[in-house]
């Protein structure tokens, strides 16, 4: 055989991946409580670290966290970082250009230690800065699902 052979590429989709995860009682309560427009966290009885969404064990001090340790948060927080995302993975293994850049924010909630990574909307580009006070914008109809949290927006 002379020369370089043509590479025959093979594409496979092993199965349409649908995974079912049990979320556990703490996360279930977090998700169900979103219907009432409330954000729950879990405060570690060992070290005081507050997780959002709640967790049943503490990564910092390895204490067990129980349902009694669940706390209600204000849903307000501070933007500690942000980026204008122009691209995102397209689901098929490539990057796609977004039609319009979206603002992805790192939000530290009041009285919590975890940082949430959320879309941020309703901010003029010149007002977008670290330290901006933000709050949850809820979907018009909440039903007890993670999607009830629409995004974060500036306070006031």
């Amino acid at each position: 055989m002379e020369g370089k052979s043509e590479i025959v590429e093979v594409k496979t989709f092993p199965f349409p991946a649908g995974f079912n995860w049990a979320v556990g009682p703490m996360m279930e309560r977090f998700i169900r409580t979103l219907a009432g427009r409330k954000v729950l966290g879990a405060r570690c009885p060992g070290c005081g670290y507050t997780y959002v969404p709640p967790r049943s064990r503490c990564g910092q001090c390895q204490a067990a966290i129980a349902e009694k340790d669940v706390v209600e948060l204000s849903g307000k927080g501070t933007l500690i970082s942000y980026t204008n995302a122009h691209v995102a993975p397209d689901g098929n293994g490539n990057l796609k250009d977004l039609e319009k850049p979206i603002v992805v924010g790192a939000v530290k909630l009041e009285d919590a230690d975890s940082v949430l990574f959320m879309p941020v909307e309703g901010v003029k580009p010149q007002d977008l800065k670290i330290g901006l006070a933000v709050k949850v914008r809820w979907r018009e109809e909440t039903k007890g699902a993670v999607a009830d949290i629409c995004c974060f927006e500036p306070v006031g």
């Binding site: 980026t83 995102a88 990574f117 879309p119």
Partner: peptide, 18 residues
Amino acid sequence: PQFDRQIGVLNDIAAAAL
């Protein structure tokens, strides 16, 4: 998968930018 993937805006490039 229970929260961040449901929100769906984070990937390694956005995280690195933050």
